[in-house]
Design a protein around this nucleic acid. Structure first.
Lengths: 240, 240
DNA sequence: AAGAAAAACGAACGCTTGCTCGTTTTTTCT
DNA sequence: AGAAAAAACGAGCAAGCGTTCGTTTTTCTT
C-alpha cells in the first residue's frame, strides 16, 4: 500500500455525505434536493477550511465565506442555521469518514507488527489526503463550546487507544518489548500530528509521506520491537 | 538538574521585563513609573494567556481582558496602543526570556551526549514553567499578521536547528549513528511540543515532567546512540 | 495639607459582525 | 410554455467589537 493507491481507494468514501451522523443535522437544511446539498456543502466546507486555516474560524466572517464559496449570505443560511452549526456539521462529517477508513484498514491486517505499521501509515495517509481538515480540527476545536470540545478529546484518545492496544497485544505475544505503551502511543500520535500541523516545513524540504512513514515506523520499531523479530531491521537502521 | 531546581533558578529571569527587545515598545506605554508598568503588564499578560487559552485570542474581547486583569478599558490602553500591539509585546518579552535560558543551559554542557539530554530536558522544563505561553504561542501566532508569523516560524526552526547541530556533531565524533538528523530533530520537537499542547492529558495520567523527559531521551537515544556508547542503556530499555 | 502630576476610569462612537426576510431568479413539472 | 416550487439574493437590523477622551481618583512633591 502506497499513498497513491490509498488516495484513489479513498475518494469514494469522501463522497458519502449522507451517513447516520449527518442526518441528525439534515433538519437544519432548508434545501430539498440531496444533490444540491452535496454540491454546495462541499463548496462551503472547502471554503471554510481554506479561510479558517489562514485566519482562524473565529476571524472568518460570513461575508468572507459567502465570497469564497460563491453563495450569497441568504443562500448560506439555507444549509446551516448558525456559524456554530456549520462547524458541528463539518466536524461530524469528516470525523465519521476518518474513523471508518482507519478502522477498515487496520482490521484488515492480521499480524501484530503489520497492524502497527499499517496504523501509522494509514493515519499518515489520511491526514495527508485531508490535511486542511486535520489541521483545522486540531487548531480550532479546542476553542469551541463544551460538547464539541468533548468530542474532539474523545476522538484524540480513541486513536491513541488503537496504538496502545496494538502495542499491548504485541507485548503479550512477544513481538514487542515491555514499555510504557500508553506513553509510546502518545508520542507516536504527536509525531503523526506533526506531519499535518507543519505541512509547510516538510513540503519545503521535499520530505514525502512515504519517507516520513518509513521514518516513523523505524523510530518506533527500534524502540519497541524485540530483537528476535528485528531481523532485517538492524540493517535498515544504518540505511536511514 | 531536576525540575524544582530549574524552576527556582529561572524565576529570576522571568522578572526582567525590560530587556532590549522590550524597549522598542516602551514608547507605546503612557505610564511613567517602571514598577507600575511591570506590575500591571504582568497582570495583563497573565489575563491574556488565561482567556486566550480558553477561547482564543481573537475571541477575547477587551472587556474580557479588562475584567480579568482588574483594569478599566482606559487603563489598559495606557499599556499598549492596540490589541495587536499587546500580542507583539507579549510575544517579544516571553520569546527573549525563553531563548536566553535555553542557550545558557546548553552551552554549559561540554559532552555531546550530555548536550542532547540537556537540550531535551531544559526545553521540556521551560515549557512546563511557562506552559500557558508556550501553548498560546503555538495556537495563536499562526493566525497573526505577516511579520509576527515570520518570527514564530523563525523561532520554531531555530530550536530545531539546535537539535540538528548536536546530532550532526555527535555523528562526527562517533557518539551518534548516521541518521537523517533533520528529521530526527523535527520529530523530537514534535514530542516536546506534545507535552505543553496536551498538558491536560499528562496531568490526568500523573505523568511527571521528569518521567516524560527520561522517556523522550530514551526513545531518541535508542534510535541515535551508537552501540559503543550504549553501555548502561541496553539495560534501561527493559526497565521502562 | 495643598497643589500638581500620574494613573485609572467608563460612557460614548463608529464600524463590523452574525443573521433575517421580503424579493428576484432558477428549476421543475405538467 | 407557463405556473408553481425551490433556491439564491443582498440590503438592513440589533448586538457587540476595538478604541477614544473628558473626567475623577490616587499618588507624589513640597
Amino acid at each position: 500500500m502506497n499513498y497513491l493507491k490509498f488516495k484513489k481507494s479513498v475518494s469514494n468514501y469522501a463522497k458519502d455525505f449522507f451517513n447516520e451522523d449527518f442526518f441528525e443535522n439534515r433538519k437544519n437544511i432548508r434545501i430539498k434536493k440531496e444533490s444540491t446539498v452535496a454540491k454546495n456543502l462541499e463548496k462551503i466546507f472547502d471554503a471554510t477550511l481554506k479561510i479558517s486555516n489562514k485566519k482562524g474560524f473565529q476571524a472568518m466572517t460570513m461575508r468572507d465565506l459567502s465570497r469564497e464559496a460563491g453563495l450569497s449570505m441568504g443562500a448560506l443560511y439555507s444549509y446551516f442555521s448558525s456559524k456554530e452549526d456549520l462547524l458541528k456539521m463539518l466536524q461530524s462529517q469528516r470525523r465519521s469518514v476518518t474513523k471508518r477508513i482507519l478502522e477498515e484498514y487496520i482490521n484488515h491486517e492480521t499480524g501484530i507488527a503489520d497492524k502497527l505499521r499499517t496504523a501509522i501509515r494509514i493515519h499518515l495517509y489520511l491526514s495527508e489526503a485531508m490535511q486542511p481538515w486535520f489541521y483545522f480540527s486540531y487548531m480550532e476545536t479546542k476553542n469551541i463550546s463544551g460538547p464539541e470540545q468533548a468530542k474532539a478529546i474523545e476522538s484524540e484518545l480513541y486513536t491513541e487507544k488503537i496504538f496502545e492496544n496494538i502495542l499491548k497485544d504485541g507485548e503479550k505475544s512477544g513481538v514487542f518489548l515491555h514499555r510504557n505503551h500508553q506513553l509510546t502511543a502518545s508520542v507516536t500520535k504527536a509525531m503523526l500530528q506533526d506531519w499535518y500541523l507543519k505541512r509547510w516545513k516538510y513540503a519545503k524540504r521535499n520530505v514525502s509521506v512515504e519517507q516520513y512513514a518509513k521514518y516513523l515506523i523505524s523510530i518506533i520499531e527500534t524502540f519497541c520491537l524485540s530483537s528476535e523479530h528485528e531481523n532485517g531491521r538492524k540493517k535498515s537502521r544504518r540505511e536511514l
